[in-house]
Every structure is written in structure tokens, then in C-alpha cells.
Design a binder for these strands. Structure first.
Lengths: 337, 337
DNA sequence: GAACGGGTTGTTAACGTTCACAGTCGGGGC
DNA sequence: GCCCCGACTGTGAACGTTAACAACCCGTTC
């Protein structure tokens, strides 16, 4: 192609020439500036349409210092919880007119979190959501000097940043109280990894409920969220005589527990009642269908964007703390003692 | 505070002044240009370190016309398959030095795909990966005049774009042949939604295996990937006398099938053998543990980035088609007829 | 001693927007 | 008739980087 025009994408100046106005007027039209004669506006819009012009957001970001991009750092988005949360975040962010740039961490240690944050900051994101369910991640966040508005999901006492989370303690309570109300003497617990804030919250809720009912809390069995660890915990529990009720810290482990019980000939819910946590789509079809505590991940994602955008567009503000309540889902894995 | 220096972030010019060189030399150091005296280089690096300078990637993108950002558009990243694929994509992209911007679609229709693509193009991504498992998405892709290098995951005959996919037909064959080899007269099938290419491929593989063995293919039961739809198909199957082997198009539906069988008193694998597809983490702990076909989503994600990056950095090229083989995973849900 | 050439550095001009400011035009008040 | 003001539009300069080119230094070569 000659030097005449080639394949070059049209820029504002081209539109301006086409419409017989200045590039600034084009800019005004694009930004909905009020003081543009409506006739001029249509002329510009026609030119835009004719040339197939699209504004260059990179150039815009350079001068405005806003990229309208939000960063998300999350741990293992393969898991149902993080995946759902990130999904909610993405939907909400796009609805609010932001792009979403994502970083999934394999393991969360301080260095990993810092790197991810740096990485996103380099990219020029306007704000960051950190799905930081581990204590170590939350601590990293608290220590980091972040130049970018940030909100933490499940972040515990995450220093100066705003936090959106599910009330894990209430969830643990809900599960345990349900089992106690069915007449069980006490409730056993298969917990998540101790580094996780969610695991810790559920343990606390379980303990509080038992204490309030004046029951002894048995020693919790620790899992790692995986079905396998639930299976192993289930084998231990099956070998004990006095177990009639178990609160498992997530549905995947609960699946493992159910499997172990089945193998050992322990019948659920006739001999032992089981409650899970999360309400993954599969839970309803476990054998037997799992009574569980539902977390509204979607709401968590949405809220975190709301908080972040408020912070971004409303100037600096108080840090907020938003707690989403969990709900009880009755199915058939629990029965009277 | 004053006009002296304020809180302004340092730019290249500041580093240049600090090091007593020109901003261009700083740029050269940052870009590993060979012709910089090593003494100068260290002086510049020291200045960068002292000032805490970080280069502005937005400005850089403006002039180079490369953002080093890749776009990903995917359908419902809440599902295990897409989530794992996107995870693999993200890991590989970051390793290759690219940022990842993501768009999750609720529903995939032509307009949705086009919007997502436009959206990402506006943002200035260098390339796009479309996780397009539906026929409609693939068709949308084929029709679209895309100005950006694109690769499709599970994209079927996706027009001019490169494709990375799992060999679904081979997977369907694997499952069916396994069941036939156990002596079952024929194999029933619970399929995915007909609009999905993956569903179609699995049906084709199942049919081919039956045909090759000279067996009649029963009418497949259609599901929608959800455990519930599997449950409903399972109830139908349980009510039939002659069903001894079922190939279910994904593990979630297989869970539903198992549930229905359990409820109806049909024993797996004693009376009926069941094979799933995907190998989700839960499958191993179903009752009974599910024999299934494993898809290496991670590899798919990685490969798609490899193909895309090759296209990006190697100039325009032939479109590629990369097929990842599925593998058979033996567990206990299948037995001799 | 002049011309050459490679390594090293600096100068100037893009890139495509938005911002700050300066016009121009027309109508209303005195 | 004059001034002012508000609506509208244009001009020039940022933003922070890389690209293109020019310039310099110093050692070789003829």
C-alpha cells in the first residue's frame, strides 16, 4: 500500500477531519461533554461510524492515569469457591465498566502475594481485589505498602484494606446447632487447613455452639479441603463407637467422609449425621444428598467490586468491612439421634 | 506537597537526571540494549533502585503498540472444565510474560461473543483465547472479522483461527470400548447438550465404537451437564430392564445417574456399569468411585497459549490444530457383564 | 593525516489521547 | 451601542515511553 493511507487504523484526528471539526470536539463527543451542539455531535458520530473509529484506550489511560482495569489475585481458581467468587467479581466489574486482569497463585506465601501485587501495579490497574483466604496471605497484605486501592475477600484482619467476607463463624454455628437440635450428644468436626481463615472461623463457630450448649468439644480432625483428606478423616471417625454427628468444613471433604462411611458400613443418616459447607452443585446428589451451609460466593464477588469502586470513585474513604451471612440448606444427610 | 517534588512517581527523566545520562540511555538499560557501557548500566540501575522507579507500561504500550496483555473469553468459569482451562491459560501466559484479561460469559450467543471480542480489542490486547465449547460460539468466531490473533479452545471448525482441543471422539471411544470389552451387550449414553461440540464428539466416539463392534446404538438420553439432568436420565435408565452399561458424558451427570440408581436399588457396578468423563477431583470418591475419561485441561490451556504466542511473535503463520488425547481412568464403577 | 567504523550516547519526534486555556459567536441587559 | 456571559469550538501542550537519527569518541586502516 502506498503512503496515502495504508491499513492504519483511524485516530481522532482522522475523524475530526472527516467531520470538519477539531480533534478536541471529537473527544468531547466521545466523553459526553454537554457543550456540543447536537448537530455537530451527529456529524462527528457519523464520521466515527463511517471510518469505523474506535478510541485508543491505551492513549487515554496514559493521560488520565486511569486504565479502568481492576486486578484480581486469587488462590487456585480451580476450586469451586475461588472460581465462583472470581466469576462474581468479573461480572460485577464488567457491569461497572472495568476490565479485569487476573493472577492465579499456585501457592500463597508472602512473596507470591507481593509479586502478584507488583505485577498488577506495573500493569497500571486502578484497584485490586485479593481473594486471600489464608492467614499468610492476609498477613502479607497487611504488611505490604500498596499504592493501589485494594479490597480483600475473606481477608480477616487485613491491615488497612477493606474486607468482604462470609460469616464463617455463623456458618459453623448454624451447622452445629442444627445437629445439636436433632438431639446429638456432641458434634465432631473435620476442619480445613489451619492456615485458612475460613477453616478457623468454622472451627470457632462449631466450638462456640458446643460450648453454649454445655457440651464437650471433641478434638477436631484436620483435613486439607480435598475429598481424600475427608476420606481419611472419615475412616478414623468410622472406627470410633460414639460418633453420631459430624460437621465437615467443606462439601468436598464431606464427600470423602460419606465414602469412607459407606465403605465401613456406617449408614448416613441412620447411624451418623453429616453436615457440609459450601453447597457445591454436586452436594444435592451425594449419597445421601448433603445437608450443608451455603455460601453466596456470587454476592461476595459483587460486594467486593462495589466496595472497591466506591473507594475508587469516591476518593479515599474509611475502610469498610462487609459480612455476607451463610444460609442453612436442609437435605437428607442428617437425622434425629 | 510543594511544587518541589511532591508525591509524583519518578519517571525515566528523573532516573536519567539522577544517573547523569539521557532518558534514552535509561530506556536502553531497561530494554537490555547491548550497546551500553557496563559502568553506565550500573549507574542507571543504581538510580532506578534509589528512586524506586518502575516503568510505565501504559506509555510503553502506546508507542510500541503492544500491551503484552492477552484476552480470554470463556463460558461460565464456575464449571470445572472451563475453570481448569482458564487456570492453565493464565499460568502459561504469565510465564510467557503476558498479562491476562478475562471475560466470562453467562450465555454464549453470537452477540455475546462479538461483544466480548470487541471489548477486549478495545482494551488493546495483543491476542485472544476463546474457550468456545458451543457450536454457536464457534460459528460466531468463524464469522467475525477479528483484527487480533485468536486461538479457540474446543472450537471445532472455527473458521480461520487456530484450535486446541481434547480429542472428544477418542474419549467417547475409550469409554465405550472399555464397557464392551467387559462383555456388555451394548452401551447406553447420557449426552451433553446438543449445541456443545464436546457433547457431539463424545456421542460420535460412542457411536463409532458400537458400530465397529457391530452393536445397535440405543437412543441417547440428553442432559445439560448438570447433576440434576443426570439424575433424571438415571431414573429413566433404572426403569429399563436391559440396561447394563452406561457412558455418561461428564462426571457431574454421572453423579446424578449414580444417585438415581442408588435410590432405585440398582447396584453399581454389580447390575450396571457406569463410565463418566472429565475426572473431576470428586469422582474418585463417588459411591462407587467413578471410572472415567480424563481430560488434561491444564495441557489444553498451556498449549493454547503456546500457539497464540507463536503466532504473536513469529509473525503471521499457518493456522494450527492441536489435539490433546484423553486418558482412561479405571476405578470401581464398572465390572464384567 | 584523513577517512572509516563500531561502540556509546544524546536529541528530537512520534504514539493518540485529554486538559487548560483562549477564542468566537450570539443574545440580553443597561 | 456597548458590555458581558454562556454556549460552543479550536489550539497548544502535556502524559511517559520508544524509534530514528545524529553526534561523539577512539582506534584502525590506507
Amino acid at each position: 500500500m502506498g503512503s496515502t493511507l495504508g491499513r492504519r487504523l483511524p485516530v481522532m484526528a482522522d475523524v475530526a477531519k472527516e467531520a470538519g471539526v477539531s480533534h478536541q470536539t471529537v473527544s468531547r463527543v466521545l466523553n459526553d461533554h454537554p457543550n456540543v451542539r447536537s448537530e455537530t455531535r451527529t456529524r462527528v458520530l457519523e464520521a466515527i461510524d463511517k471510518l469505523g473509529y474506535r478510541r485508543n484506550l491505551v492513549a487515554r489511560a496514559l493521560v488520565t492515569k486511569h486504565s479502568r482495569t481492576l486486578g484480581v489475585v486469587s488462590f487456585d481458581t480451580t476450586l469451586y469457591g475461588p472460581a465462583s467468587t472470581v466469576y462474581g467479581i468479573e461480572q460485577a466489574a464488567r457491569a461497572a465498566g472495568y476490565f479485569v486482569s487476573i493472577v492465579s497463585l499456585k501457592s500463597i506465601d508472602k512473596a507470591g502475594v507481593r509479586d502478584a501485587l507488583d505485577y498488577l501495579a506495573d500493569q497500571g490497574v486502578d484497584g485490586i481485589v485479593v481473594v486471600a483466604p489464608q492467614r499468610s496471605a492476609a498477613r502479607a497484605l497487611a504488611d505490604l505498602p500498596l499504592g493501589v486501592p485494594t479490597v480483600a475477600v475473606e481477608g480477616g484482619e487485613a491491615g488497612d484494606v477493606s474486607v468482604v467476607c462470609v460469616d464463617q463463624v455463623a456458618g459453623g454455628r448454624l451447622a452445629t446447632e442444627h445437629l445439636l437440635s436433632l438431639g446429638h450428644e456432641t458434634v465432631w468436626h473435620v476442619s480445613g487447613p489451619s492456615d485458612w481463615l475460613e477453616a478457623e472461623g468454622r472451627v470457632a463457630g462449631w466450638r462456640a455452639a458446643l460450648e453454649q450448649a454445655g457440651r464437650e468439644a471433641p478434638r477436631p480432625l484436620a483435613g486439607d479441603w480435598s475429598p481424600r483428606s475427608g476420606y481419611e478423616a472419615g475412616r478414623s471417625l468410622a472406627s470410633m463407637r460414639n460418633v453420631t454427628a459430624v460437621f465437615v468444613a467443606n462439601d468436598q471433604m464431606a464427600l470423602g467422609v460419606l465414602r469412607a462411611f459407606t465403605e465401613q458400613g456406617v449408614r448416613v443418616p441412620e447411624q451418623v449425621s453429616v453436615v457440609g459447607f459450601d453447597d457445591i452443585p454436586e452436594s444435592e446428589f451425594f449419597s445421601p444428598p448433603l445437608t450443608t451451609i451455603r455460601q453466596d460466593f456470587d454476592a461476595v464477588g459483587r460486594h467486593s467490586i462495589e466496595v472497591l469502586v466506591r473507594q475508587l470513585e469516591g476518593g479515599l474513604q474509611e475502610r469498610e468491612r462487609l459480612v455476607v451471612p451463610p444460609t442453612f440448606v436442609a437435605r437428607v444427610s442428617t437425622a434425629r439421634a
